[in-house]
């Protein structure tokens, strides 16, 4: 075969990365909101208020919400809100369209159909509520991931897509941890574990009841839990190294040292004090931001730095 398969346009790479991020964001948001809404049933007003504040702060950038229903509706269907599911699905669709020649027909069809459903979805339609909406999103996104896994070539395009998924997974979990880390309520940690699909995994892995510190340790550094920060960062590190090897002048590009340093730190026994956790989360978050910049500079830069950031002018003088 020729090397044609290895050509990924900078724009396509960026679209694939964002496609992965938005698909993951849609699914994660659906799960987080779904779990919180379920757990609120039968809980105290106090809990509802606290959760509304936590979620609103990290996802809606707002303190205005005291009731979770209103928050959930906005984070689901308000297309003008950048962290809403509708917004994410719309952006996923646009990015899929833009990278249409790099993804499989099956994966594309799924996103196209999901977009059609979400863009038309309204709450009163067919008496469907938010729970139905979340189940559609979760199902579609999971199907999408599965289709991508089973129908796409393992080429650079695939790696950019996966990078997007993993980066977003990291992003969401870090945000959740930062929102909840001051809380010592057990119910808060059960809801976090459930939100990322890790409650049962926690029970199986630790054989102990949920408590704040245990949950935090599990979510941050559990090697065998695929969504833990450690596991996700290891995957990101592997993909990034692979992608760098594919670059012609790979000598000049190095993974920022923050990433291996963070991985080493997580591989060793963790802190036990809550205030140390906060410091660790800050460090992980800044590592995450450094990496996000790094992807742009090393992979998408031909476009990011291209002329199109500057005005096009024409010059005709006499």
């Amino acid at each position: 075969m020729t090397s044609r398969g290895s050509i990924v346009l900078a724009r396509t790479a960026e679209s694939l990365y964002w496609l992965g991020r938005y698909m993951e964001r849609s699914e994660s948001m659906a799960r987080i909101l779904d779990v919180h809404l379920h757990e609120i049933i039968g809980s105290t007003n106090d809990t509802e208020g606290r959760w509304s504040k936590q979620i609103a702060k990290i996802f809606a950038h707002s303190d205005d919400y005291s009731d979770f229903d209103g928050l959930a509706i906005d984070l689901s269907l308000d297309g003008s809100l950048q962290s809403s599911i509708r917004y994410s699905i719309e952006r996923a669709y646009e990015n899929a369209k833009s990278a249409r020649d790099a993804i499989s027909l099956e994966y594309w069809e799924l996103i196209n159909v999901a977009y059609g459903r979400v863009s038309k979805y309204s709450l009163d339609q067919f008496g469907h509520g938010l729970f139905t909406f979340y189940s559609i999103i979760k199902e579609r996104c999971a199907q999408g991931r599965g289709l991508a896994v089973s129908t796409m070539n393992r080429d650079a395009a695939w790696q950019f897509l996966n990078l997007g998924y993993d980066v977003e997974q990291l992003d969401i979990l870090l945000r959740l941890l930062m929102a909840k880390n001051e809380s010592l309520h057990t119910e808060d940690w059960v809801v976090v574990l459930r939100s990322i699909g890790g409650h049962e995994a926690f029970l199986r892995a630790t054989n102990s009841p949920v408590n704040a510190l245990g949950a935090i340790n599990f979510l941050i550094s559990e090697k065998i839990f695929p969504r833990s920060i450690l596991a996700t960062m290891r995957r990101i590190s592997a993909i990034t190294s692979d992608l760098i090897r594919g670059i012609d002048d790979s000598q000049t590009i190095k993974v920022p040292s923050e990433l291996p340093r963070a991985i080493v730190r997580l591989e060793n026994p963790l802190a036990t004090e809550v205030d140390q956790i906060e410091e660790l989360l800050d460090e992980l978050w800044s590592c995450h931001l450094i990496m996000c910049t790094f992807y742009y500079e090393s992979f998408f830069s031909p476009l990011a730095k291209s002329n199109f950031n500057y005005p096009l002018r024409s010059e005709v003088w006499r």
Binding site: R4, S6, I7, V8, L9, A10, R11, T12, A13, S98, R100, D101, A156, F160, L243, G246, I247, D248, D249, F299, F300, P302, L303, S306, N307, F308
Partner: peptide
């Protein structure tokens, strides 16, 4: 089986046209 490009993916240099890829220009 060929790349789908938008104008911003291409640029001219010295009477040749290049496409911006993640690796280098082709």
């Amino acid at each position: 089986g060929v790349p789908l490009v938008e104008p911003r993916d291409l640029f001219a240099k010295g009477n040749e046209i290049f496409v911006r890829t993640t690796k280098a220009s082709r």
